[in-house]
Design a protein around this nucleic acid. Structure first.
Length: 278
DNA sequence: GCCATAGAGGGCGTTACCTCA
DNA sequence: AGTGAGGTAACGCCCTCTATG
């Protein structure tokens, strides 16, 4: 659904759907004017597309999330993109355990070709990240927190809370620049004894939090604007009713020429005129 | 110059884990 | 000790942009 709130001459599109983040007890998604960098509107996001493709009424997404299964495609399916083998992964520079871990994700069955391709590229991307981290580690950016025994054993990595010092350092960096280039990422990772991927994820989440806060602020501001305009509208409606009633009860006003109110577009001053309207 | 493609990086939605009341 | 809520690290998918052939 789109609520166009007209504030002045610039209607601000509001999207009330998608995002399950709780904002003031509501599930809200907004089109942001400033979303950090490339000018991509939230309105062009997946949720927006999903919503716009269906009924333009309020959408409450009550359906349970359906995760896409990630696995190797059926053997009958011949992909134009050769599926990497364990050996090929190792020969590309990855470490054995990383490849084992990755290869372990390929064990279950899957039939959807489209998902297969998407998964394929996602996994390649993930593998690249791993490789980047591994090579960074080999250059001396190893970490004590990120590489747990669990991870080495191929078990799901435990979520590790960053220390106060690490968070504070990242926060300071974020104040300087809210995005990272690869060099900065590696430098931060080395400084904080984290994996580059952890730094990357922290910045992603931090940007999301910033945007969420800004959204809350914007929402409150627009809510107040809306309330003010509603009140103003109510007052003017009442005034119109009173004037109509006055006109009906006092014939004297019937003979007066119509008064028009015009607003100067530049200075926004209201001028009265007794000339009859067109 | 135009087009197709691949890769990089970021946003978004979501999950899972952790902490705390 | 058990539990629910909130915070957040991590993930997967998709998009845009850019480089390249």
């Amino acid at each position: 659904m789109e609520l166009a709130l007209s504030l002045g001459d610039t209607p601000k599109p509001f999207s009330l759907h998608g995002k399950s983040q709780k904002i003031l007890g509501m599930d809200l998604g907004f089109c942001m004017e400033n979303n950090g960098g490339r000018g991509e509107e939230a309105g062009s996001s997946e949720s927006e597309r999903r919503a716009s493709s269906s009924d333009p009424t309020v959408q409450l997404r009550l359906l349970p999330f359906s995760p896409v299964h990630r696995s190797r495609p059926p053997s009958s399916y011949t992909s134009p993109f050769p599926w990497p083998t364990h050996d090929s992964l190792v020969s590309e520079g990855g470490r054995g355990e990383k490849c084992e871990e990755w290869a372990a994700t390929l064990s279950s069955s899957k039939t959807d070709k489209k998902s297969y391709h998407m998964d394929y590229f996602s996994i390649l991307k993930s593998k690249r990240r791993d490789f980047e981290e591994i090579t960074a580690a080999d250059r001396g950016c190893a970490n004590s927190r990120g590489t747990s025994d669990d991870e080495e054993n191929g078990v799901a990595r435990k979520k590790l809370r960053l220390s106060k010092e690490q968070s504070a350092f990242l926060e300071d960096s974020f104040k300087e620049h809210n995005t990272l280039n690869p060099k900065q990422k590696l430098a931060l990772a080395k400084e904080l004894n984290l994996r580059p991927r952890q730094v990357e994820v922290w910045f992603q989440n931090r940007r999301a939090r910033t945007k969420l806060k800004q959204t809350e602020v914007d929402y409150e501001y627009l809510k107040r604007c809306c309330e003010t305009l509603t009140e103003e509208n109510r007052r003017l409606q009442k005034e119109v009713q009173e004037l109509r009633a006055l006109k009906a009860t006092q014939p004297f006003y019937k003979n007066l020429p119509a008064t028009t109110l015009t607003m100067c577009p530049s200075c926004e001053r209201i001028a009265t005129s007794n000339k009859p309207t067109h």
